[in-house]
């Protein structure tokens, strides 16, 4: 199979994630879309690594996974704190700052 298909797949996943962040309203789902974008970048890194025949891209994707895990910890902590004080995880309900 042509290896460039993986690049197309990665671009599609990234686009789905980027659109999802904009159109979805639940903070958890928005967050999942962001994770999808990070993983799309990972897929691109690994594919380019294969194309160029060096390991730098694969190493980068490991770092990305670790960083994404840290991001989950911080992100869920914030979302849970918001949910507990408002009983809602919708990003539309969080609008006190708009006046």
């Amino acid at each position: 199979m042509d290896i460039s298909n993986y690049i197309y797949l990665s671009a599609i996943l990234f686009t789905i994630g980027a659109i999802g962040v904009v159109v979805r309203r639940n903070a958890i789902v928005v967050f999942m879309c962001i994770e999808l974008m990070l993983n799309a970048a990972n897929l691109a890194f690994v594919t380019f690594s294969r194309i160029h025949g060096n390991l730098a891209g694969q190493v980068t994707s490991f770092f990305t996974m670790v960083v994404a895990a840290c991001e989950v910890v911080v992100g869920l902590a914030i979302i849970v704190a918001i949910y507990r004080s408002r009983r809602s995880a919708s990003v539309d309900d969080a609008s006190l700052l708009k006046r």
Partner: peptide
């Protein structure tokens, strides 16, 4: 709310 916005 600011933290959530900043984070997302």
């Amino acid at each position: 709310e600011a933290a959530l916005k900043y984070f997302l």
